[in-house]
Design a protein around this nucleic acid. Structure first.
Lengths: 330, 330
DNA sequence: CGCGTTTACGTCGTTCGTAACGATA
DNA sequence: TATCGTTACGAACGACGTAAACGCG
């Protein structure tokens, strides 16, 4: 059993049990890869794939079990490679960031500018999705770090660096009757009306749904989108009442954002999340440090290395934004 | 970077940075191993060992970090090897069991008899220690399973199968004044007297110390031993009042075990603990099944594979002992 | 000089690529 | 007949062991 064999096995699995395709991804020949597979199977003493005629039809039970361990093994091999690259001062590399459109647009951008300045040879791949997708991508090894939000505690089995706190805002077309009230807006003003918000707020467990349910109300999220610009555009078009992250607010003349009574929609925290077992390259740390100016780099290092919790408080969005901008220029 | 190189690196570290010694353990030559190390270091691009003159003086920082990942990587390689051995029907193997003397003597024995009957070619290594040592051995990869006890919930980050519940008993030399009371014994009868018990009960956080402290008393564990036989022998010799696991009770004529008031010393549970990331060979499962007859094997499999909790209640020691004996004969 | 590591060199085994083959839809 | 996996063969590379050299206590 060798690393090459396991890498080949994984590549075959991840290319739909197609040796030819996998060989291309590995820059190897079909022949060689086929032989590697045979060798691995003889080394283990049992077939890893079901074979129909001369095609790979699927994993055997043994293959399933071996695959799980092979993934972890190769992940550690990648970790050692990453360590090595850092120690050698390798400037090239890739950073895969799982995040939502909102964070990618409003929070990630300044960090990426700092990264581009200091690490111009690093390729950045944004893996889009909602908050749940991002956690999954992190767990599956499809992302190196994630920029995600939530209302409660950060997800367990992740290293979480809180970046900033933010609130959702209600937006209305100018002239909408709810815009002319002489009091703060309440949730029952919104109940029964068509809402325009993020796709994830339709989910039963979402904090929006829970906030309404707690007061015996129901939220009718009739139009959803992934990004705040669209939500506001739809609101302008009269499709409903918008609920959008404050970071995305762009009111202009034809849109107003009335004040909502305090704490009716719980505040969100945006975290930078790291998988606990994956080595973060130096440029990944640089991005982290750029996005978390409220934490001293040495504290961040200690968090990652030893799990020592961070001390600094989590700033509000506007404070955080200004700090990051100031830090970036410096 | 190859598996062989990493195995060599680990062997050198675990043999006190001595290539010659490590080569012997690996059944290889010094020369070959030395070259493997050089190759690994050139592959990673940085030295892993500090070198003074021509001797390895210690790990570099890089070596420390690589070592941690290499251990996990090689642990997964061992897992795949274990899977392979099971699938091939390999009957040989080794099982390392971390446990205390009490469990080894009174709980493990029937399981080992079943193992010896069905898997005669398996080598069993008992790794002795107290409950904390056993957890450490499990975490460090020095043991495949552990048989340990505690008063509360089972340790997290382990798969725990509860085996049985047991209590501690007070033993006195025949004719001791406390043996003639016409009421159940209380903890304040024992406070201020010299106690003979397990070494772990001297620790400040032990359940014995906590039980006394809760009532404002202090336990004076003046004589300690690792096994119940010794504790009872010392008690016979008049060295103090014995406190011993009920499994170890062997009273005879010159020793009595008065009844203690209910729940003054909390009941203990003995668990069979498995590290979550290590593959359990079939013979390990056989031992587990023999020691946990109250659980259906299929439920145990599900617990190990998917973490599905067990349903059955945990029997008392005497019930468990009789069940295991009956099962063993069948 | 003993100890332990490194280097030199020759042999063996293994891997990889090209190319042909077999089998299937 | 196109596609995909397997097999055959030859060349190149790498690994391992023997043996000698090197540096320190």
């Amino acid at each position: 059993m060798t690393l090459t064999q396991l890498r080949g096995f994984l590549a075959i699995v991840e290319n739909g049990h197609n040796i030819t395709l996998a060989a291309q991804h590995l820059h190897a020949t079909q022949s060689g890869l086929s032989k590697q597979l045979v060798q691995l199977e003889t080394a283990l003493g049992c077939p890893l794939f079901e074979r129909r005629a001369r095609a790979l039809a699927g994993l055997t039970d043994a293959g399933q079990r071996v695959l799980a361990h092979a993934r972890r093994l190769l992940a550690e091999a990648d970790n050692i490679q990453a360590l090595s690259d850092d120690l050698r001062g390798e400037r090239r590399g890739a950073l895969r960031i799982a995040t939502t459109h909102t964070q990618a647009r409003h929070a990630l951008a300044p960090g990426l500018q700092a990264l581009e300045r200091d690490w111009p040879e690093v390729a950045v791949h944004v893996v889009p999705g909602d908050d749940a997708d991002g956690l999954q991508a992190l767990a599956d090894g499809h992302a190196d770090l994630a920029l995600l939000s939530g209302t409660g505690a950060p997800p367990a089995d992740c290293i979480a660096v809180p970046l900033y706190r933010w609130r959702r805002r209600v937006v209305l077309p100018a002239g909408h009757p709810l815009g002319g009230l002489d009091r703060a807006l309440r949730l029952d003003d919104l109940a029964g009306r068509r809402l325009v918000s993020y796709a994830s707020s339709r989910l039963p467990g979402s904090s929006l749904q829970r906030a309404f349910a707690q007061r015996g109300l129901q939220a009718d999220v009739a139009v959803t989108a992934r990004d705040g610009d669209l939500i506001q555009a739809y609101t302008r078009a009269g499709l409903g009442i918008g609920i959008v992250a404050e970071m995305a607010l762009e009111l202009g003349e034809d849109l107003v954002a009335p004040v909502l009574e305090d704490a009716l929609l719980p505040a969100c925290t945006t975290w930078l999340l790291l998988p606990p077992t994956r080595v973060l390259r130096d440029f990944g740390f640089a991005l982290l440090a750029a996005l978390a100016p409220q934490h001293a780099p040495v504290d961040l290092r200690r968090l990652i290395a030893d799990g020592q919790p961070l001390g600094a408080a989590t700033p509000e969005w506007s404070t955080w934004r200004d700090t990051v901008r100031a830090t970036r220029v410096a």
